[in-house]
Design a binder for these strands. Structure first.
Lengths: 157, 157
DNA sequence: TATTGTTATACTCTATAACTATA
DNA sequence: TATAGTTATAGAGTATAACAATA
């Protein structure tokens, strides 16, 4: 049985230790940012093959669960400006995953739907995501820990 | 006693409800991002008068607790590229908060210190931050909840 | 008048390459 | 050769203003 090689002592480790102790221990925003960046980095590497960014995935999920909604509605829920949402949804449309169907009830609006290809693609993406999610849950220490985390995060939002 | 006016039912609320239930309930990364953005937004509004961004504050705290370190060391711990750290620390230097003292041990390096003005400024900033932190802790439900959150976040990092 | 989608634009943050002066 | 600081630059993400078509 091989031992893990010990990490080399480096100045940055000393400083990191200092950052994590003493007067700076309780910086919630800082720890939140580091954790979020770490999870997003994981997401990017896992979804690299699918060419899906976090925003793309959330848009696909939201359209799938709420078909026929206007661009403005989907964008608002995700906290994306409608001006920036245009580029996002056009990219998904060019890949044949999303359809922008002109609404006959309101000729200004586009109703968003997934294509058949989009549904199939999302099914695969959801499976990939579920695997990642299970790994995160394992790291947290189980389902109960996940629920605790989401509850605490909601109180900050 | 007046009742709060009920929030108007809007399409976005319906969609948000859909997002928070069903198949998309457990997206840890999404919830993490929303909470982080919310806390950073709070930070920006609270520190607007001090013209301090989150990265600025963390740099000041780190220099104060680890005086004499090189730029590269501080930058690395914070996850900032040393190229981008230059602009950051120069800004703090122009405001008279930080000194870049050429190291005589290594003529390539700058040793970072806070000026007297920087120390005073940081003392004030720390007080402001502590107030914000206490508010976050209250929202979480107390010290124990904060400890639980930081522990869970560490497992994701 | 207000809203939907859109374009244009700008600002911040982040990432890489390349240079200089030292080591 | 490698490292510290620096400059230049490019790419995301995000913000606002303004326009045409429609409500």
């Amino acid at each position: 049985m091989r031992r893990e090689p010990p990490p080399p002592p480096s100045p940055s480790r000393e400083i990191e230790a200092a950052l994590r102790t003493g007067a700076t221990t309780g910086i919630i925003g800082y720890r939140l940012r580091r954790a979020q960046l770490s999870v997003f980095q994981k997401f990017l590497s896992v979804f690299d093959e699918l060419k899906l960014r976090p925003a793309d995935y959330s848009v696909l999920v939201l359209i799938a669960d709420n078909p026929g909604r206007k661009q403005t509605e989907i964008a608002e829920v995700l906290g994306v400006k409608r001006a920036n949402f245009v580029t996002l949804v056009h990219g998904l449309e060019e890949r044949g995953l999303v359809e922008r169907i002109p609404s006959h009830a309101d000729k200004r609006a586009n109703a968003l739907h997934l294509t058949a290809a989009g549904e199939a693609f999302l099914a695969h993406a959801r499976a990939v995501h579920e695997t990642m999610e299970q790994e995160l849950i394992a790291r947290l220490g189980g389902e109960k820990a996940r629920k605790t985390l989401l509850d605490l995060l909601d109180r900050l939002t």
